[in-house]
Design a protein around this nucleic acid. Structure first.
Lengths: 229, 229
DNA sequence: CCGAAACGCTGGTCGGACCTCTGGCTGAAC
DNA sequence: GTTCAGCCAGAGGTCCGACCAGCGTTTCGG
């Protein structure tokens, strides 16, 4: 008896996907670096371009590679992620937004506490920069630094940052809607600042409590908002 | 000035991806249901099969669809997920395992507390079934029900379940290794049972504490284990 | 009535072809 | 000498038509 026969040998394009990842990893390529062209890969593996493209599309879907028409194919930003946001998100409803906030209410206070304990100078710097950036003018570039993601990053555990970033990525679309309905940027900023201060002071209990209150405020704002499209 | 010109209009296969999702969602298709064949889709959208396949591969990468050679293409189990495990995982090291456990140490106790507060009868049932299944004979099917995932499910928030499932999915491969190195199944079972009891009793503080201790035990076991391949 | 072979449908791969776009190069104009 | 328009090689994007391989049903022979 070998392994469970539930799976036959993977298809050609599946194996090719792994091979391309091997090229990237063994080549020490990092996000932004170019990978061989589709035709080059086709030649190297003695297969045809449609098959190569199928493999590349799979990698594209998970952010492992990025296409730039006319330019080339490049290593994507999330190639080393463990968890990622589903790029094909289901449509957003008010309930799903509340569900998201509820989930964050469970895990983010604990993350804030951990970040307060483990914060390092450079993370603190980024965190406080994120507080400031939260006051960018409306319609600005936004989210170059997201406070909540940076808060998770300050924990020193990239996985926690990934989880938060993945959860928040889904919200980007309706974040504008929420803000349009309930302009809480001023209040957000104050609360972010208070949380950052608690992290700086390494006051885990305070960071946890403030984060819980902050998210609860957001939850209430969303709850009182009318159903959005 | 319109929107930021950072993105041109999406490519044909990108739009096709959305269209296929539309077919699935507007058709009310659920995981396991069959979707139109590649040739059928090609005809319907007046494009060719390679393009259709590229779009389908992208959906496959995120678990939105599944291919079955000779049979058809079917809606996948994670189509409605918000976050998912990266199918193209980076190679696993002892450090990455410890990082994962550290992350779980931060968020799982809080989830356990929430589950204790919000647990419903049917979730409790599944949770206790997962405790029992943890004693399956070695090499068994395993993980039909994962205790930690069910613990998160008991919170009543599917997102928390997704997060836990995504984090644990990455660990499936080395879970066997860990168990081979340090057979803690008996201890696991006891601790799982204690956590489940706390959830049943709706004792949030106890559930949180027991979960933290349980994960800390696992962390210590992994730390003391030698480097694995 | 039942089992086995045949058929039709599905996904999987192939080979090459043509288009558009990017980006660097080149050469003319300043 | 500098600048910039234009060119062009190479990249991705799509297409076509074909053939192979696996699965399910249907049908036909026993």
């Amino acid at each position: 008896m070998t392994y469970s026969a539930s799976e036959a040998l993977p298809s050609l394009s599946d194996r090719l996907t792994e091979s391309i990842l091997g090229i990237i990893r063994e080549g020490g390529l990092r996000p932004g670096d170019a990978i061989p062209s589709a035709r080059e890969l086709a030649k190297r593996f003695a297969i045809t371009t449609p098959t190569v493209r199928e493999a590349l599309r799979k990698l594209e879907a998970t952010g492992a590679v990025e296409f730039r028409h006319g330019s080339g194919t490049y290593v994507g930003p999330t190639i080393n992620n463990v968890v990622l946001a589903n790029p094909h998100r289901p449509p957003i409803t008010k309930d799903s937004v509340l569900q998201l906030i509820s989930a964050r209410l469970v895990i983010e206070p604990a993350i804030a506490a951990q970040s307060a304990l483990a914060r390092q100078p450079e993370n603190l710097e980024r965190l406080e920069a994120a507080v400031t950036n939260a006051l960018v003018p409306p319609g600005g570039p936004a989210f170059a630094l997201n406070f909540h993601v940076e808060l998770a990053a300050a924990s020193g555990n990239p996985l926690l940052q990934e989880v938060l970033a993945s959860l928040l990525k889904v919200r980007v679309r309706e974040q504008q809607q929420i803000r349009a309905l309930y302009d809480n940027r001023g209040r957000d900023h104050e609360e972010h600042q208070a949380i950052a201060a608690a992290v700086r002071a390494q006051d885990a209990g305070q960071a946890e409590r403030l984060t819980r209150e902050h998210l609860d405020n957001i939850r209430q704002a969303v709850e009182s908002a009318p159903e959005f499209s």
